[in-house]
Design a binder for these strands. Structure first.
Lengths: 347, 347
DNA sequence: CTGAAAGCGCTTACAG
DNA sequence: CTGAAAGCGCTTACAG
């Protein structure tokens, strides 16, 4: 098998210099349209593909970005897809690194990746220590190192940042259920190291607090894991006289556990306990009762997160956000439609 | 910021030539232990990292592998993790490409990736046309192109290949349910383009056929998608006099839909309809009834698939398989334990 | 056991 | 608008 064609081969065949070939391909330099046309045609005809390693060495750019995932949350595959799509469109190659373990371990590993000089930027979908991030300055300013941006995190004012940490839908859930007659609420939270989990808890607490005047109270924040078992145990931890109560679960898996626990206690859902989830996993729509949840456009979240990393790389300010990627989906576990609780309570 | 140190800097500081530095780092060449020690120490002290692009250009190897994923099956994130782990240990960098759409489109895209000369090998987790694969020769022989290996596929004798296409657990499900008294079975299949779906269907049909003498019959193969709705519709498509019937669903999501449909028809599970899933998604254990399923070690499947690709790259024969990565988990949807159906039928 | 030298395939000032 | 030439940072025969 002969060696793959090089730009030198293209140059020879097109009767031009290697520099001209480079100009034709990269769009840099000044070159006549006819010459470019000819070069491109010759390149295509012999199946020329630029050697990326050679280009990288010369330009002193790796053209590589890293995305850090874990194995805990399956939806990260879709976030990764969105991020990869945007990176590719911007001319970057994306490598994935799966990192699990403690926050400390993850933080160390991300630091190593940043120190490897192998990447021009790093996007992490798993929580790491804030000091490993370079995304904190909203201005997009950079020190010398490899920029590290987290999909979900908090800024200096402790406002949640990143679309997956947008928990405003929790307020919509609480408000609607309160309007439907619920006065007692509980929250089954996710792990506090996740910005998204903290944001949902914070918005839950704020929403309930805001309705205190209307007689709304919280039975507390339970759970602390992304697991169904955590939800089941939370249901068992509710006081006997809790019903009627509305339980806001951190995600669908937790909510499924709550539903199971509710059944085990001899309660009915949504009659005694209304339950909401988050993520809109497909099975949720086919549970009995079907699960009210918050649908999330994970792919779009990945796209936006990558746009934020690219903005840092270019020294541009953080892109303005494009509207919510969340949508509340009302189903049977809260009594059906948006006016759900109403029907439930009067039943 | 000064430029990152090069092997030339290391050489100068260690008082040796650049060649010696290279020998010390790569382990190639002949070099005294003391010299190697000194070079390594100097390299570490100044934080030297070899420029991978330069190395790649010189060795004419990209050191890159591609893994092709889709967005349809979330568990691919774990397969990807296992594959990446093994690739990294073998000194390769892994890039992920997410490809959805029709089989034809996916096949074309994989062909493009193979033609890009950017990768030394490609592992696809999504189904592509068999003619895009180079894995068909069990001998590991190669033509000149970039090897493309599929996680799940069929060999020349149409035997399923790849651990996720191992459907032998279906026979265990059918046998146990038959032993427990079930005589009527149905299968809700996944998309036929997936080797795993075809394998489960084939083993289902063979298992039922094998028990025909014992009066076991199949009410047919329904469905054809990895969706809960497909399962729900399949439940509705069963004849009114189907119960008692055991339904083998292609995966847990489909099974959840079957359970929902069974409820909608006024049947009970497992009393009227026993249901099994596949994948052991976390929610399954918390459904009511909790779902009997097949637990799959997806990360291990990824490791093994990557080992197969590496074997092709090295011209070695396909690695011998290391035992099953599947395990049947009996739960309430079949009546509980392995003797489940028995208790169900006598109830 | 070690060093001097060539060259992988690009891009980019620079000169014309 | 185009070409000749240098050089990015490695590895690898080859010579000693």
């Amino acid at each position: 098998m002969p060696n793959p064609p090089t730009s030198r081969d293209v140059a020879r065949l097109a009767g031009v210099s290697q520099a001209t070939v480079s100009y034709a391909l990269t769009g840099r330099g000044t070159i006549s349209a006819t010459t470019r046309e000819r070069v491109l045609q010759v390149a295509a005809s012999i199946g020329y593909r630029p050697n990326l390693a050679a280009r990288s060495m010369r330009t002193r750019r790796t053209g590589q970005l890293a995305v850090v995932t874990g194995t805990v949350l399956d939806h990260q595959l879709r976030v990764l897809t969105g991020a990869g799509e945007v990176a590719e469109a911007a001319g970057y190659a994306v490598r994935t690194h799966s990192i699990d373990g403690t926050v400390e371990h993850r933080t160390d590993r991300v630091r190593e990746l940043a120190a490897s000089r192998q990447y021009e930027g790093i996007l992490t979908l798993v929580p790491v220590g804030a000091d490993a991030l370079t995304d904190r300055a909203a201005t997009g300013e950079r020190d010398g190192g490899t920029p590290v941006v987290a999909e979900a995190t908090f800024d200096e004012q402790m406002r949640s940042l990143g679309d997956l940490a947008d928990a405003t839908a929790v307020r919509e859930l609480v408000d609607a259920l309160a309007a439907a007659g619920f006065r007692r609420f509980a929250h089954v939270a996710g792990p506090a190291q996740y910005a998204s989990a903290r944001a949902r808890r914070d918005v839950y607490l704020a929403s309930v607090e805001r309705l205190a005047g209307a007689g709304v109270t919280s039975l507390g924040v339970l759970g602390g894991e992304w697991s169904a078992e955590s939800g089941r145990l939370a249901a068992h931890a509710l006081p006997d006289d809790a019903p009627p109560v509305a339980v806001i679960a951190a995600n669908d898996t937790v909510a499924a556990g709550v539903l199971r626990g509710v059944g085990e206690r001899g309660w009915t859902a949504p009659g005694d306990v209304a339950v909401t989830g988050w993520d809109d996993v497909e099975i949720g729509a086919h549970l009995t009762p079907s699960l009210t949840t918050v649908a999330v456009d994970f792919t779009e979240a990945g796209r936006r997160a990558m746009h934020r990393l690219l903005a840092v790389l270019r020294g541009e300010p953080r892109p303005t956000t494009d509207g919510p990627i969340h949508r509340v989906v009302w189903r049977e576990s809260t009594g059906g439609g948006r006016d759900a609780g109403q029907r439930v309570r009067s039943a």
